[in-house]
Amino acid sequence: MSGDLRGSVDADAVLIRRQGRAGRITLNRPRAFNLLTRAMVRAIHAALDLWRDEPEVELLVIDADGPAFCAGGDIREVHSHVVAGNLGAAREHIRDEYRLDLKLARYPKPVVAIMNGAVMGGGIGLGCHAGHRVAGERFRLGLPECSIGWIPDSGATALLARTPCGVGELMALAGLQIDGADALDLGFVDYTMDGNRCQEVIDTLCETGDPAVLGIHSTPTGEPGLRDKVGRLRVSAPIDTPVALAQALERAGKAPEMADWCAKQLTALARGAPLAQALALRALEAQRRRPGLARALSLELRIVSALMRHPDFREGIRAMMIDRDRKPVWTSPAGTVFSRAETDPFLRRADTRNVIRKFTEDPAK
């Protein structure tokens, strides 16, 4: 393939073209923090399908323009479908994005994701399931979904479930951000790199078609610290409720050197929707019991398909993205502990069975 595949994607929101031996995908909505619209997702799907059998394309490189790699899927687009009563369109939007995440993870050619900026939600799906994941010095990974009545998704639960006890729960429930050093330590990326060298590395990848150059150009970007901090919480088993996480933070916060950090996490934890937090923990539990990206995506799709019709999602979008008062009023107060009988229906809603079946049976598309 030559030229580009931008097609009808508005305002060149994603630039898709060949460069040397590589297929290039560059997110190009810098003012919108490269939020993924459904049109962008479909354009990337089409490029992957075309390049799969092109011998001239030896690897793929995904990067982005602006301060963010990708701040997630365009949740406003999903919300607009929900408000209009078109839940089917909202689910299809999400399913398309999740299938792209799985396609990238299973792609038969090397996929290199150069992430030099904010990475959230769908950005994690686009970059952190690639075969070769690079964090630039501006890399910051966060999971703020519980603050809008959603759960960490795009396969994030598969990555979080592999982290030490307490780390995944804290990142999921409190939206704790990590830098490149911690991301490397925890397995979210494979390399860290000076951001000023990213373009040079991309050009070399395109010239050689060989991802081995990443190791040559990799450089330290700092020392990881999150594993040690969470270790001070003395969590020896997976956390099963937000209350248990809050209690661990409160105990650890009695040490003067931990007081400020624990207080910050407790404040963030209290902002999340209690139901979404409980469901995020159930998703992590399921992934630890039966790991795998396809399973994670399928369960996440079940949960968010149920959450999109729940009042907490509408309230979260109102408080964080529409009115922006950052004062959501959730249907359940902080500290609510949900029984498994209360959360089970969100994990197995009957009306999503066909969506799940199409997703798992046809992962290549």
Rank of each mutant, 00 (worst) to 15 (best):
T221C: 11
R340A: 13
A273N: 06
W261N: 03
R288K: 12
S298W: 00
T343C: 07
P211V: 09
A255S: 14
S339K: 06
G222T: 11
E285D: 14
T241S: 11
S339T: 09
S298Y: 00
E223N: 08
F313H: 08
P238Y: 06
K229R: 15
A248Q: 06
A341L: 10
R282A: 07
S236C: 15
W330D: 00
T241D: 08
Q287I: 03
R302W: 01
G209T: 03
E342D: 09
A273P: 01
M258V: 04
R324P: 01
A306S: 14
K264P: 00
M320T: 09
A341V: 08
A280H: 01
A248V: 06
G215R: 02
D312E: 07
R288E: 10
P345H: 06
A306K: 11
R302I: 00
L214C: 04
S298M: 11
L284P: 02
D240F: 06
A237D: 14
G272S: 02
R227I: 06
A273Y: 01
S236D: 12
P291R: 14
P211C: 14
T336G: 03
A278E: 01
P224S: 10
R349Y: 07
T219D: 07
G316Y: 01
T221G: 02
S218F: 02
P224K: 05
R326I: 08
D210Y: 10
A334V: 11
L214R: 07
E285T: 12
G335V: 12
D351H: 13
R309N: 02
A268F: 08
R288N: 07
R290F: 09
I322H: 08
G335Q: 11
A248N: 04
Q277Y: 05
S339A: 13
G225M: 08
R282T: 04
S339W: 05
I317R: 01
A276D: 01
A263D: 13
A278P: 00
R340E: 15
S236Y: 13
V329W: 05
A248Y: 02
A273V: 07
I216W: 04
G316F: 06
V213K: 03
W261H: 08
A280K: 01
S236L: 14
F313M: 10
I322A: 14
G231Q: 08
P242M: 12
G225C: 05
